[in-house]
């Protein structure tokens, strides 16, 4: 297994270089260093001299990818891309364009993101499995039919609607929890309840349908029929056998969600005023802060790779037949 993990880590390097290059190209396709400087300097009385000085001070006065004025390797190294991106591979995210230490900000903002995302994921998986099991249990009956219809309706509704509706009903009409906000102490719980509930509810439709499919696929297999023939109750069949065997596709889907735990939910954090990594990324895009954008994209890519690697490893735990080699 170790050889497999090492190989996967080595595969990750070209992927990360590619992601970095792509982020860089897309970002500078839309924003020039002049644009970045202008935005940082403000909207009033920005002179061309000030823009030039800012670019020099922040290393944006170099060519983007290739420096014709240099010789040898400096043609590649004395560029914005090299100077701003290579350190990422050492997880040195450097400073934002406003001078703040990005690693520190990430380390502070990851907790609010996790405070929302972790309970949402765990409760979401639990609720989705429960509902999917129920639908599988009542398969072919009116409960299954109407359940699927309800799932389709729920997954057709925009997350934004859940957020605004949730804030309106729970926060404004019923006045049960604060409409938005956050606290760094244990008081954070009262702010987390509503976004977590909304996160779970907005994911129930898609999650339940998906898991139901996994369960139905398993439920018609021979070992299930054998279990029933042995006289096992339907609940025992579902929870002891079907659930266990349906875990591989469920884990694959959950693995893909792991990066989101850290990266945060962009809209959710913005509407609930949660100072997590999602709002950090959104703000950076709005402020054209390339240093933060590339750091967050890089981090996201690393987490995706790590997430899928962990998923692969988890297969061996839930299914002894799986061997990583």
């Amino acid at each position: 297994m170790i050889a497999y993990i090492v190989r996967r880590i080595l595969y990750a390097i070209p992927i990360l270089i590619g992601v970095n290059l792509l982020t860089f190209t897309l970002f500078f396709f839309v924003n020039s260093p002049d644009d970045i400087a202008r935005l940082q300097l403000g909207v009033k009385r920005v002179t061309p001299e000030a823009i030039e000085k800012w670019k020099v001070a922040h290393g944006y006065d170099k060519p983007l990818l290739y420096n014709n004025d240099e010789i040898g390797s400096a043609r590649l190294t004395d560029t914005i891309f090299f100077k701003h991106s290579v350190r990422l591979f050492l997880f040195d995210f450097g400073r934002a364009d406003d001078g703040r230490d990005i690693s520190y900000d990430i380390s502070k903002r990851v907790w609010p993101s996790l405070a929302i995302a972790l309970p949402t994921l765990l409760m979401g998986v639990l609720v989705n499995i429960t509902f999917a099991m129920l639908l599988a249990f009542f398969r072919g009956m009116y409960l299954d039919t109407w359940g699927v219809v309800l799932c389709v309706i729920m997954m057709s509704i925009s997350t934004l609607f859940y957020i605004i509706g949730g804030q309106y009903v729970t926060g404004k009409l019923l006045r049960l929890v604060p409409i938005s906000g956050y606290d760094t102490s244990w008081q954070a719980i009262k702010f987390v309840i509503l976004p977590v509930i909304i996160g779970v509810v907005s994911g129930v439709g898609a999650g339940t349908r998906l898991y139901r499919t996994f369960f139905l696929e398993e439920i018609n297999k021979d070992y299930v029929r054998t279990g029933r023939a042995k006289g096992l109750s339907e609940l025992r069949v579902l929870f002891r056998h079907v659930l266990k065997n349906a875990m591989i596709p469920i884990l694959t889907q959950v693995g893909a969600l792991i990066p989101l735990l850290f990266i945060g939910s962009l809209i959710m954090e913005s509407f609930f005023g949660i100072p997590g990594l999602g709002s950090y990324t959104i703000d950076a895009i709005r402020h054209q802060d390339f240093s933060i954008v590339r750091a967050m994209v890089f981090l996201g890519a690393v987490l995706y790779i790590a997430g899928y690697l962990l998923t692969d490893i988890s297969y061996t735990l839930v299914d002894p037949r799986v061997r990583l080699n």
Binding site: Y168, G171, S180, G181, G273
Partner: peptide, 18 residues
């Protein structure tokens, strides 16, 4: 001064006296 990016929650909290 609390960060409140979106207009709707900002407005509702004002109406609640917060």
């Amino acid at each position: 001064f609390s960060l409140e990016k979106e207009a709707i929650p900002r407005w509702n909290k004002y109406l609640q006296g917060y």
